[in-house]
Write a protein that binds this DNA or RNA. Structure first.
Lengths: 128, 128
DNA sequence: CCGATACTGATACGCCATTATCATTTACGA
DNA sequence: TCGTAAATGATAATGGCGTATCAGTATCGG
């Protein structure tokens, strides 16, 4: 039989993967396109969306949801972390660690399963 | 001259305000409609959106953004707090207090201006 | 009570982010 | 190298949320 159900290794996918891994921070589909375009001239936004979707389905990408924002995407496998959203350049950075006392905030009778922390301000590049 | 630029006190607005204040938690436009409908039969979703918008503009309502969710609305004027999102009933509750060590999470060179904390799990009504 | 006009409900429309379509190109096993 | 099917790019279509429109209604100062 011939090639069935396989996934081909294309220049476009390589460019997209490379862009995300190089950036090391969650990126929007638009950001991914901008970063990957030089690596794969002519790359279209549809292919970015397709690759991001299959990446999430395939498990190597994780969708990052932030308040009031469309989803961003980052490589899977990093340890537990949170995010910093720069108000100036709109980029999102990963931050290590986790605040204390989250359990104490949970109301009686509620069961805590997960949490999300987002910091806002200016990143090093945008700070005065 | 006659009445100019005034805002009228209608049954619909009273119902919407009452619903939000009674609930005491951030509600989506849909939730507001459901809660206010018994107080004002025939109430339409457009009026809910209009009233929520004017409430935010007027300052008595605050828009609450949560990751991957359309905005919810709560009464303005409460002290600093965060939210608990129940995974079962999808309701959002207010929680008092604030975790420690947020500043310590901020990377060097970044300036921290605000933060958001969201807890996920089951509320008292949905917990086993 | 009256009249001007803000308000309302139903719904058409617009905006964005994402997905489907489809003709063409490309990867890759044989 | 060949053939075939997956992949791509351009763009139309979709879906969800919110706003604009408009004819009819209700508020409220006079």
């Amino acid at each position: 039989m011939t090639n069935r159900g396989s996934e081909r290794d294309t220049q476009q996918k390589r460019a997209i993967r490379s862009a995300i891994e190089t950036a090391g921070r969650p990126m929007s589909p638009r950001e991914v396109l901008d970063e990957a375009l030089p690596l794969s001239p002519g790359l279209g936004i549809a292919t970015v969306y397709r690759t991001l979707k299959s990446g999430v389905d395939g498990g190597w990408l994780t969708q990052v949801e932030l308040p009031g924002e469309p989803p961003r995407y980052e490589a899977t496998g990093k340890q537990h972390h949170h995010h910093f959203h720069c108000r100036s350049c709109d980029r999102v950075y990963e931050i290590e660690g986790c605040p204390d006392g989250l359990r104490a905030l949970t109301p009686p009778g509620f069961s805590l399963e997960a949490h999300e922390v987002v910091l806002y301000g200016l990143c090093a590049a945008c700070a005065p």
